[in-house]
Simulated scan of single mutants.
Amino acid sequence: MLKSIANVLKKVRENTPLVQCITNYVTINDCANILLCFGASPAMCESKYEVEEFVNLISALYINLGTLTAEQEEASIIAVKKAKELNKPVVLDPVACGAISRKMDIARKLLQYGNISVIKGNIGEIKSLAGFSGKVRGVDSIDDGEDAIEACISLANQYNTVVAATGKRDIITDGKRTCLIYNGTPILTLITGAGCMVGALTAATSICNDRFTSTAASILAMNLAGEMTQNSMEKVLPGTFKVKLFDFIYNLTEDDILNGGKIECL
């Protein structure tokens, strides 16, 4: 599987996919920069008067519910409907859907109106969306991961999509195939936007037809870059770590994936 993941990285850099992001204001700059470093092209087009036209131009759409305004809500629905019409991949990041009922309602609307290619969230969010008991604190998961694999598979089958739940180990499934990723570092939890950046990268990799592999590729790339960043620092400080993380995403190679990836296929 690592070879296939390495090929995803190669394809993104060869094609420079245009990724439209309707995302939260806390991390919008981080998402734009991580996409650029990864080899994609970001577009933060979120006006309800522009999104339908803009979807014609894009390679993929990323929707993040983190700081969802009324206009973003309307724009997201318009955008997913148009993306479905044009068969463009859509990644949904249902931030805080386990803590705020409005977020859950909107996530379900987007799943109803659109053809969502990937649902990417933390374990608490994914379990909540799947109808399991998920433990969350605001936008953060405090879930111990019990029944997480079962919840991911259930949600993937319910919506015929790929589901990714991030945590101490990351779970990716399309309902039939499931893998676990063991790369990463706890330092990623000390910087705002790590999850949002992974979501943006997942949209970039979704240009590949095998969305199960492409989703694993985006998460592994982020986690591996985090490990490499940490290992490069004599003293690990969150601010410096975040800056260097962009550099390591930029310099990430296919060999890094082949030699450093830690994946278990179930």
Rank of each mutant, 00 (worst) to 15 (best):
K3V: 12
S4R: 15
N7E: 14
V8P: 01
V12H: 11
V12R: 09
V12Y: 14
R13L: 01
N15A: 12
C21L: 14
I22D: 06
T27K: 03
I28K: 03
I28M: 14
I28W: 01
N29S: 09
I34T: 10
M44P: 12
E46Y: 12
E46R: 01
K48I: 02
Y49G: 12
Y49I: 00
E50L: 01
I58E: 03
A60Q: 01
A60D: 05
N64Q: 08
L65D: 10
L86Y: 08
V90Q: 11
L92W: 07
S101T: 14
S117Y: 06
K120T: 04
K120D: 00
F132W: 02
F132E: 11
V139A: 14
I142M: 04
E146H: 10
C152N: 02
S154Q: 06
Y159P: 01
G167Y: 00
R169W: 02
I172V: 15
K176W: 02
R177D: 06
L180Q: 04
L180E: 09
G184I: 03
G184Q: 07
T185Y: 02
I191S: 08
G193H: 01
G195T: 07
C196K: 01
M197V: 10
V198G: 00
G199C: 14
T213K: 10
S214A: 14
L220F: 14
M222Y: 15
L224I: 11
Q230H: 14
E234Y: 07
E234H: 06
G239Q: 07
T240R: 13
V243Y: 05
N251F: 08
L252Y: 01
L252S: 03
E254L: 05
D255Y: 04
D255C: 02
G261I: 01
K262F: 02
C265S: 13
